[in-house]
Amino acid sequence: MSAIAAFARNDLRTVGRDTLLGVVLIGPFLYAAAMWFLPTVTDHARAQWAFDLAPYHSAILSAFCVLGPPLLMGAMLALQLLDDKDQHTLTALRVTPVPPATYPTYRAAVVAALTTISVIASLALTGQVDAPTLALSVPVAVVAGLLAPVLGFVMASLGRTKIEGLAVMRVVGLAVFTLPVVPFFFLDRPWQLAFGVLPPYWPVRAFWSAYDGGTYWPYVVGGLLYNGALAALLVKVVTRRLR
Results as ranks from 00 to 15, higher is better:
residue 217 W to S: 04
residue 109 A to R: 06
residue 206 A to L: 03
residue 187 L to P: 00
residue 55 P to K: 00
residue 92 A to K: 12
residue 239 T to I: 02
residue 50 A to W: 02
residue 71 L to Y: 10
residue 98 V to Q: 08
residue 190 P to Y: 01
residue 30 L to H: 07
residue 188 D to Y: 13
residue 38 L to P: 11
residue 18 D to F: 14
residue 180 P to C: 13
residue 42 T to G: 04
residue 147 L to C: 05
residue 73 M to D: 07
residue 165 G to Y: 03
residue 75 A to P: 02
residue 216 Y to G: 05
residue 63 A to K: 15
residue 203 P to N: 14
residue 145 G to C: 00
residue 163 I to F: 06
residue 59 A to F: 13
residue 86 D to C: 10
residue 166 L to N: 03
residue 243 R to K: 14
residue 114 L to W: 13
residue 227 N to W: 06
residue 115 T to H: 09
residue 236 K to Y: 08
residue 132 P to T: 05
residue 187 L to Y: 06
residue 202 W to L: 12
residue 17 R to T: 14
residue 183 P to E: 12
residue 80 Q to K: 12
residue 186 F to K: 05
residue 186 F to V: 08
residue 201 Y to R: 14
residue 68 G to F: 15
residue 69 P to C: 15
residue 59 A to H: 13
residue 184 F to P: 02
residue 70 P to K: 03
residue 217 W to C: 02
residue 186 F to G: 05
residue 205 R to S: 10
residue 30 L to V: 12
residue 113 A to C: 06
residue 170 R to H: 06
residue 119 V to S: 05
residue 94 R to Q: 15
residue 13 R to Q: 06
residue 30 L to F: 15
residue 230 L to P: 01
residue 75 A to G: 10
residue 33 A to S: 13
residue 214 G to A: 07
residue 72 L to C: 07
residue 158 L to M: 15
residue 72 L to G: 06
residue 228 G to C: 09
residue 227 N to K: 12
residue 131 A to C: 01
residue 153 F to K: 06
residue 169 M to H: 05
residue 138 V to T: 11
residue 224 L to E: 04
residue 76 M to E: 09
residue 28 P to H: 08
residue 179 L to W: 06
residue 89 T to D: 01
residue 31 Y to P: 08
residue 138 V to P: 01
residue 55 P to F: 00
residue 156 A to I: 11
residue 3 A to P: 04
residue 231 A to I: 10
residue 53 L to R: 02
residue 1 M to S: 09
